[in-house]
């Protein structure tokens, strides 16, 4: 039954939230992308904003133009059409983005601890992290912060007990079965295993970030020289250790 595959709830006076009940998967992500595309077109003028996430879509509408009945109806229709259609995980605009990463104990202060707790060598951790194809499940927390999943169970590690006050821009990090690149210097509690020289968020660029929800991502190991050659800096990082 299709109506068991999703639910729609009120979130606030001008927001409804659609939940897909199947949980995190690349297929869920593909369906979410398709529904978002459809809603952007159908709701156009009444739509204020839309937030896709792992298995949900928050739709914020203009309550002086429409009401929650009408928006609910559009959501229901879009969700039903797409969930019942044979959407495959590879459908939609799903580009592959390769992010270079300099893995080392210099650039990843938690790399050694993570490896020893996982019972692996540092090189094994790097191999596992770079051999998995990730999906962008969600973007949030900070501008350009993309939640990538899923990290191999072997290197999945819980967040730090005490978050760092400052994590440098470009930090490649792991939290449970997710990985991410910090787009800007910020506080953070993820385990840092390397640095990525690619700018993850640039307000002056179009598009302002290299990733979109649903994209496929692979990490490629680079050397320190390559990292520096691509414009990466270690100075800021060392300053906060």
């Amino acid at each position: 039954m299709s109506n068991e595959k999703f639910s729609i709830s009120i979130a606030g006076e001008n927001a409804l939230i659609l939940h897909l009940t199947d949980g995190i998967s690349t297929l869920t992500t593909a369906k979410i992308q398709a529904i978002v595309t459809d809603l952007r077109e159908k709701l156009s003028a009444s739509l204020i904003d839309i937030i896709p996430s792992y298995a949900s879509i928050l739709v914020i509408y203009e309550p002086l133009h429409t009401d929650h009945f009408a928006v609910r109806k559009s959501l229901q229709k879009a969700a039903k059409n797409i969930i019942e259609s044979r959407t495959k995980s590879s459908d939609g605009i799903s580009k592959l983005v390769t992010l270079p990463a300099y893995y080392s104990t210099d650039s990843g202060p938690d790399l050694a601890t993570l490896a020893s707790e996982a019972g692996l060598s540092i090189n094994q951790v790097i191999d596992i992290h770079t051999s998995t194809e990730y999906r962008v499940y969600a973007i949030g927390f900070a501008p350009g912060f993309a939640y990538l999943g899923e990290v191999d169970q072997k290197i999945a590690t819980p967040r730090l007990a005490t978050p760092r006050q400052k994590v440098p821009r470009g930090s490649v990090a792991i939290a449970d079965r997710q990985t991410a690149v910090y787009p800007a210097e910020s506080p953070g509690g993820w385990n840092i295993i390397g640095l990525c020289p690619t700018l993850m968020f640039d307000p002056l660029a179009t598009p302002s970030m290299p990733l979109a929800t649903g994209d496929r991502v692979m990490f490629e190991p680079i050397t320190r020289d390559q990292f520096l050659g691509l414009g990466g800096t270690l100075g800021r990082f060392e300053a906060i250790r």
Partner: peptide
């Protein structure tokens, strides 16, 4: 819960 969109006043 799985991280999801937050609206004003949540």
């Amino acid at each position: 819960i799985l991280s999801e969109g937050i609206c004003l006043g949540a």
